[in-house]
């Protein structure tokens, strides 16, 4: 296994190279490199405070990395250096969408409106940057109808179609999580970054989420990068798992490999007191 070419190194959609993020004296991520395979589900796991969300914030432009390179390769062949782009362009041009650990919906707007906002950029072009839309040109009407259809499609996929006109803040927690994914998908992303999508979901909702993510990957040519603590999600659906601890990558491989990696077991479960020295030596800490 270890000698063969890994699928994620073959044709990565996102290459993270020597990513370092420092906040003053605190090193949140230290020289992190890994690839996100095209059309795969990659899970980023690690104990609390390991720097997973910081990686996300660097990838989506909310933080500017201190060092390193983030190369997004779209399916058309265009390459984008994400560390040089402002956050909104990463979504608009490099087609990287994200969700948030603490859900960020537009609570006072309806579910449908949330999905319409996600299609802002194509609709702006269709409305001739508002001028045409203001005078009711047919191009905008057509684009608007198409946008509604796209929104309906995702609402059907996520089972929210019956509540399309309800305010987003009124939804139960699990539905809000799904709506956030639907909203991210409405931007037409090639890489979808999900920050703990299963947090706070019950087992049934968790299973539905797995199904949704598998569907997204299969039908929409979208690669998924997700942070997750729920191992049932991680082990079941991901093709590739990267483990972080204290900002350093401690393991990288398929789920089976990671599950049995002594580094990972040490980071998550710890070891007996009398074994600390030997284990530390083994794992090279």
């Amino acid at each position: 296994m270890s000698n063969t070419m890994k699928s994620w190194d073959n044709n990565p959609v996102l290459k993270i190279e020597h990513l370092t993020m420092r906040f003053g004296g605190l090193v949140a991520i230290n020289d992190l490199s890994f690839n996100v395979g095209r059309g795969e589900i990659t899970a980023l796991i690690g104990p609390n405070g390991a720097g997973k969300t910081t990686v996300f914030n660097c990838v989506t432009g909310f933080y500017k990395p201190t060092e390193g390179r983030l190369v997004m390769a779209r399916s058309g062949g265009e390459k984008y250096l994400l560390e040089r782009m402002p956050d909104f362009k990463i979504s608009a041009q490099a087609k990287v969408a994200r969700t948030f650990q603490n859900i960020r919906l537009f609570g006072g707007m309806t579910i449908l409106e949330n999905l319409m906002v996600a299609q802002h950029n194509p609709l702006m072009v269709a409305s001739q940057h508002t001028v045409g839309g203001l005078f009711g040109l047919p191009t905008y009407k057509r684009a608007s109808n198409e946008a509604v259809e796209k929104a309906k499609y995702w609402l059907e996929r996520t089972g929210l179609i019956d509540r399309a006109d309800n305010p987003a803040a009124d939804l139960p927690y699990g539905d809000q999580r799904r709506l956030e994914i639907a909203r991210a998908m409405c931007t037409g992303p090639e890489l979808l970054c999900l920050d703990e999508p299963a947090a706070g979901l019950n087992p049934k909702e968790s299973a539905e989420l797995n199904e949704l993510l598998m569907y997204i990957r299969k039908e929409h040519d979208t690669s998924v990068l997700l942070i997750e603590h729920d191992m049932s999600v991680v082990m079941e659906i991901s093709d590739h798992v990267v483990v972080l601890d204290y900002g350093v990558k401690i393991s990288d491989g398929d789920p089976e490999f990671v599950k049995n990696d002594p580094h990972v077991i040490a980071a998550y479960l710890g070891v007996d007191d009398d074994e600390v020295d030997t284990v530390e030596q083994e794992v090279g800490l």
Partner: peptide
Amino acid sequence: RLRRLPIGRAWEALREDEIACRSLGI
């Protein structure tokens, strides 16, 4: 009319959550 156009929705979305707006490419 503006409220029903993408720009108006973006204004309201901005009022609701600016960070989410940026993550959606606005």
